[in-house]
C-alpha cells in the first residue's frame, strides 16, 4: 500500500459508514421501503446468525471449492493453450475463427447444458467457471507469448538455448506477468461461474442460499449473501496480489529500482 493510500483509509472508512448510515436512516424513516431495500441492522443480524450458528460454512465451503477448482482448472488450461497457440502460428491461424466465436458467445448460457451433463452437484458449476476463466487467461498468455521481444529470443538462441529452454527461460517468464494481470479478473469470473451455476440449480452453496432467500422475499438474507461473496472475492484477490509480488520481483515498481 502506498503512503497516500494509507493516509486515505480513515476517509474511506468514513465514506462506508456514511453510506450505511444513510441507508439505515432512509429505510428507518420509510423513505425507502425495507421490503425492497432491506435494513443494514437486519443484514448484520442475518450475518451474525449464519456465522454464529456456523450454518453458513457448508454453503461457503462448497462455493469456495467450486471457485478454486474453476480458477485452477481454467488457469491451467488457459496457460497451456495460450503457450501452445502462441508458439505455433499454424494452429493459431487454423483455430482463430473458432476462438473468436467462443469468446464472443455469452458463455453463461452454457450453464443449463452443463447442468444437464453433470447434474446439480459441484461439477457443473466448476465447468462453467472453467469456461469463463479459461478465455481470460488464454488470451493474456497468447498475447504475452506473441509479444515477447524478438531480440531477447534471438539473444537466447545465440547463447545456445534449445526450443525447450526457450520455452522455460524466455516464453514462460514473459507470459507469467500477463498471466498475473489476468488472474485478478479470473478470480472474479470463477466466482461468477460458481454462483450463477448455483442459481440455476443446486442444493448447496452461497448462491443457493441467496436463491432460497429470494424465494421467500427475504431481501436482508440476499444482501447478506452478497456481502459474504464480496468479502471472499476480495480475500482471494489479495492472495493473488501477494503471489504476484513474490513471483514478479524483477519488474520495475515491484521492488526499489536503483538509480545511477
Amino acid at each position: 500500500m502506498s503512503a497516500a493510500a494509507r493516509r486515505l483509509w480513515p476517509y474511506q472508512l468514513a465514506l462506508l459508514t456514511a453510506l450505511i448510515g444513510a441507508w439505515h436512516a432512509l429505510t428507518a424513516a420509510g423513505l425507502l421501503s425495507p421490503f425492497f431495500f432491506g435494513r443494514p441492522l437486519e443484514v448484520a443480524r442475518v450475518l451474525g446468525t449464519w456465522f454464529g450458528s456456523g450454518s453458513i460454512f457448508p454453503h461457503l465451503g462448497v462455493t469456495l471449492l467450486e471457485t478454486l477448482l474453476a480458477f485452477a482448472g481454467g488457469t491451467l488450461l488457459g496457460v497451456l493453450c495460450g503457450l501452445w497457440l502462441g508458439l505455433s502460428p499454424f494452429a493459431a491461424a487454423l483455430l482463430d475463427p473458432y476462438i473468436k466465436a467462443a469468446n464472443a458467445m455469452p458463455r453463461v448460457v452454457l450453464a443449463p447444458i452443463f447442468a444437464m451433463w453433470l447434474g446439480l452437484g459441484i461439477w457443473s458449476k466448476v465447468l462453467l467457471g472453467v469456461t469463463l476463466v479459461f478465455f481470460i487467461v488464454f488470451f493474456n498468455v497468447y498475447q504475452g507469448v506473441k509479444d515477447v521481444n524478438p531480440v531477447i529470443v534471438d539473444n537466447a538462441r545465440m547463447l545456445g538455448a534449445s526450443r525447450r529452454q526457450l520455452l522455460r527461460y524466455v516464453y514462460w517468464p514473459s507470459a507469467l506477468s500477463w498471466v498475473f494481470s489476468s488472474l485478478h479478473t479470473a478470480v472474479g469470473m470463477a466466482f461468477v461461474g460458481a454462483v450463477v451455476g448455483e442459481y440455476l440449480g443446486s442444493a448447496k452453496g452461497v448462491g443457493y442460499l441467496i436463491l432460497q432467500a429470494e424465494g421467500s422475499f427475504d431481501v436482508n438474507a440476499v444482501l447478506a449473501g452478497i456481502v459474504v461473496l464480496t468479502i471472499c472475492a476480495l480475500l482471494l484477490d489479495t492472495a493473488v496480489t501477494r503471489l504476484e509480488r513474490r513471483l514478479l520481483r524483477w519488474r520495475p515498481g515491484q521492488g526499489d529500482a536503483a538509480h545511477f
Binding site: 521481444n149 539473444n155 537466447a156 538455448a161 529452454q165 527461460y169 524483477w250 519488474r251
Partner: peptide, 25 residues
C-alpha cells in the same frame, strides 16, 4: 557470440542468472 544493439537481457532474471544463462543452456 552476438552483442545486440538494443537491450537483450532477460528482464526477469538477475544479472548473475543472465550471465549464467548460456552456460546453463
Amino acid at each position: 557470440g552476438y552483442l545486440f544493439q538494443t537491450d537483450a537481457l532477460m528482464p526477469w532474471a538477475s544479472a548473475r542468472d543472465n550471465v549464467a544463462a548460456g552456460l546453463l543452456f
